[in-house]
Design a protein around this nucleic acid. Structure first.
Lengths: 335, 335
DNA sequence: GCTAAGATTGGTAACGGTTCCATTTATGCC
DNA sequence: GGCATAAATGGAACCGTTACCAATCTTAGC
């Protein structure tokens, strides 16, 4: 490995001078700088990150915890973070949940793993965290952002769309198409953002259809298999419905598979509305209408806010995340 | 930040003694060790990775390059690598392709980014690499494994299933169900592993149906949207066929969407066979039969081989990756 | 009680950068 | 030309850890 001392020796200059050329700080005579640059080139010198990290106390790495990579929701987020970090010339260290479900224990273990590695900051994503956990983590690592979950006590570090509004929008959409007999598949009730969207959904229905209205609802775990099973349970219970709202697209895709197997045609017999508008929705059969949650913008904002905090940058952070409806083929007017 | 000097001071021992307790190397009197451990506990001391990296020349980090995270193929791989690395107490630094297509330039740029970060080793995945590129990279970083691509010149560092055999299996399966009028959607012809599976597929058909047999085939880019478009082109060309083979599940899902929109029923009118057996296949409508490629085992073997090489470990590496058929609902007997 | 071997211990040097300070060289001005 | 100021330069010190060496302390054996 070639060191900056080798460079200095070859260029015939002092250690400090070589360092000044490499880091671009301090003044060096143009002719001298050129000599050093040629030496760098000749030796293919690359400064050691480890040495810089040791001296500066900054590793230039951001840790990212993601519960699991099933489905098309999380991968997209990871890619967005990577692009932003590489643009800022920082690196991404990733830890995934090791179990297939998003548990509190997994998140804390993953976060611990990342912190031990001296990341300059951490991006956290999970539905399983409690407010206390968030507080504890923030104390150990002030450079923390939480995506897609909200804790009042650490609100400034949370980035998410207004899921209550998203749930309302889902209800409005189905109502506008004339649907009155509705059922739903909820995500885990331990997930704050899931609770938000289900509350918005039901609030809106109660406002329009009357406070006494009951919406049959099955809980699942945000997975395709879970959605498949939940749809089966709703049918087995004998509910008659013209529209089904699913708290994410994964579960909606599972529900579509179930409905198809039971001989129900979507959208003719049942309209299905998803949530998140993930890439999977576009080529579902039939193409899945979905509440569009601007997760890319949410992720971008969180990542940039973290970069600003960690490195004193001044990247633009947009905290406005409007939800909307992406209308495709799976929702039509009630007959 | 508390350093090992703080620990030594509090424990009332020398620097070296404290270090020996931390690293577990060398001999320390039990009573002394206990004092040091208490000091570590009291100060919440954690050794600096940066200092260790500087001294040892090893960062304990493995870099992973993945082209893109669309679809359910790559995410699964990442998660498998993460689990294995964390079990070995190493970290994963990830770089993704920044464009939505897997290009040569992107891979090289990503690999460069990872190498500059002083990763101890690199896991590479790409369909766009050439044999020369692989050679060049291997010269700069001997600790390199390549997943799911094969280059004879660096064969020992390549891990992949036998895709020729996979293609053969696909053909055998469709033939066994009585299909004779077949069409196919191929991945990019620049991708070596795609070429393998298409060659196996066509070889097998020629063997069974005669050397002169022609299989209409459209090329796409392994994406769902590409599969959708390719299926459309096959139909527009007026081919009549009872079975469609797609070189990966993503494209098969796109093709299913296209066939459904054109009023063709799968599997009654057309059988569709995918490749890779990704999670998406399980809940496609209808459930997608697929050539099962043991990507988890391939990934595990590559990751372990890299760990063995980087750190002198002796993890078991199984280089036997049998392909098989996962039969679901999308392939039935020809009528 | 004495010696030798072994166990235990403390401190220095080194990893490869950057920062700071002291020194030398160049520049500007009267 | 002489002086003051600024620019340019070289090198020591430092970041936190581990490896190594020399010194000290035990312990066993006779």
């Amino acid at each position: 490995m070639t060191t900056i001392r080798d460079v200095a020796k070859l260029a015939g200059v002092g250690l400090g001078t070589a360092s000044r050329v490499v880091s671009g700080k301090g003044s060096v005579a143009p002719a001298t700088a050129e000599k050093v640059r040629r030496a760098i080139e000749a030796l293919d010198f690359r400064p050691s990150h480890a040495a810089r990290a040791l001296l500066s106390g900054s590793t230039q790495m951001i840790g990212v915890y993601i519960p699991l990579l099933k489905g098309s929701f999380y991968p997209h987020i990871l890619q967005t973070i990577d692009r932003e970090l590489r643009t800022a010339n920082r690196h991404m260290v990733v830890a995934f949940g090791r179990e297939d479900t998003d548990t509190r224990h997994e998140v804390l273990e993953g976060a611990r793993f990342l912190m031990e590695r001296d990341c300059d900051g951490i991006v956290l994503m999970s539905n399983a965290l409690t407010a206390d956990d968030a507080q504890t983590l923030l104390r150990r690592q002030p450079n923390l952002v939480i995506l897609n979950s909200s804790f009042e006590s650490v609100a400034a570090r949370c980035f998410l769309a207004d899921h209550v509004q998203g749930g309302r929008l889902a209800a409005q959409t189905l109502l506008r198409h004339g649907h009155r007999r509705l059922v739903a598949i909820s995500g885990p009730l331990t997930s704050p953002d899931n609770v938000d969207r289900m509350q918005g959904f039901i609030q809106e229905l109660r406002t329009s259809l009357g406070a006494q209205v009951v919406i049959p609802c099955e809980e699942a775990d945000f997975s395709t298999a879970g959605g498949y099973a939940a749809a089966g349970r709703l049918l087995d219970q004998g509910h008659r419905f013209t529209a089904l709202f699913c708290a994410n697209d994964e579960m909606a895709v599972g529900a579509l598979a179930c409905l198809a197997e039971r001989g129900l045609r979507v959208p003719r017999d049942v309209s299905v509305l998803g949530y998140d508008d993930t890439p999977a929705a576009e080529f579902a059969v039939p193409r899945l209408s979905s509440v569009h949650m601007p997760i890319r913008e949410v992720t971008l904002a969180g990542t940039r806010a973290l970069l600003n905090q960690c490195y004193g940058l001044d990247l633009f952070v947009d905290r406005h995340f409007p939800v909307s409806i992406t209308a495709r083929a799976s929702v039509i007017d009630a007959t």
